[in-house]
Simulated scan of single mutants.
Amino acid sequence: MAGLIKAWVHGWALSRGVGSPVAEPDGYRLDVGRPGHRVRYVLEHAGSVESRASALTEPGTWLKVSASREEVERTVPSSWEVGPPEYLMSAPLAMRPVMAAPEPYRAELVGDGVVTDVVVRAPDGSRAATGRVAIAGDTAVIDQVVTEPEHQRRGLGRFVMRRLDEVAVAAGAERAVLVATEEGRALYLTLGWTVAAEITAAHLPEKN
């Protein structure tokens, strides 16, 4: 579990263009530096949630915890907002035949070999679906997979994931990890991914 979390944290930092994660006794700190998301602590277990949440008071602070929503919600002070359940998932990677984009869509790759976006465009040139992969050592971290509402249920999510796999294998990655929403988990399970742990986010909101 610690290895999966380490890989995900480092890949997420690459994907989001933030500084390298700083190791902490209970996980990692990422200095994100963005409105509403100033700093993020990724905790490997629920044991330190209470002490962390009590000591951290700066709005825009986030905790991402390998624990159930119920565990986090009953531990953090009421000033923290707790998000819905998410899931740390993983899958082995292997070379497979290249998949073409479903008609009438077309796909393109944008990136530098470390972080690569798959962009699927509709016939009018608008974005129909996107996804990103960041390569951290032998692990590919999948991030920001989105299908626009008007293009859903047309196989684009499945295509984007397959294309990201192809990019990752070509870069030498041997496994892939991601953190999925409840909705995303359903798709990824059908693609051979497995759930490694429940993940819960909590944050101190910034006031407007």
Rank of each mutant, 00 (worst) to 15 (best):
M1S: 13
I5S: 07
I5Q: 09
W8S: 03
G11M: 10
W12H: 13
A13V: 11
A13E: 05
R16Q: 12
R16E: 14
V18Y: 11
V18R: 04
G19W: 06
S20D: 08
A23R: 14
P25N: 05
G27F: 10
G27T: 12
Y28K: 08
Y28D: 11
D31K: 09
P35D: 02
P35S: 05
V39N: 03
V39C: 04
Y41G: 10
V42F: 15
A46S: 14
S48P: 03
S48W: 08
S51W: 07
R52S: 02
A53F: 13
S54W: 06
A55W: 01
A55D: 00
T57L: 08
T57E: 04
P59K: 06
P59M: 06
G60T: 00
G60A: 03
T61P: 07
L63I: 14
K64R: 15
V65M: 14
V65A: 13
S66C: 15
A67E: 11
S68Y: 15
R69H: 15
E70Y: 13
E70K: 15
E70C: 09
E70H: 12
E70I: 11
E71P: 05
E73P: 02
V76W: 08
V76A: 13
P77N: 09
P77L: 10
S78K: 14
E81Q: 11
V82Y: 09
G83M: 14
P85C: 14
L88D: 11
M89T: 12
A91R: 15
A91N: 14
A94S: 09
M95A: 13
R96E: 02
P97Y: 01
A101F: 12
Y105C: 00
Y105H: 02
E108C: 00
G111M: 04
D112P: 01
D112W: 07
D112Y: 08
V114S: 06
D117T: 03
D117E: 07
V118G: 01
V118E: 03
R121S: 01
R121C: 01
A122S: 12
A122H: 03
P123D: 02
D124R: 02
A128W: 00
G131Y: 00
A134R: 08
I135G: 04
I135M: 05
A140S: 11
V141L: 13
I142W: 04
D143Y: 07
V146A: 05
T147N: 03
E148Q: 12
P149G: 11
H151M: 02
H151I: 02
Q152A: 07
Q152N: 02
R153N: 01
G157R: 05
F159C: 01
F159M: 03
F159V: 09
L164M: 06
L164T: 02
D165C: 00
D165K: 01
V169M: 12
A170W: 00
A171F: 10
A173T: 06
E174G: 12
E174T: 07
A176C: 09
T181A: 12
E182I: 15
E183W: 13
G184L: 10
A186Q: 15
Y188H: 08
G192P: 13
W193H: 09
A196W: 11
A196G: 14
I199Y: 14
I199L: 12
T200H: 15
A201K: 08
A202Y: 10
P205E: 12
E206V: 13
E206R: 04
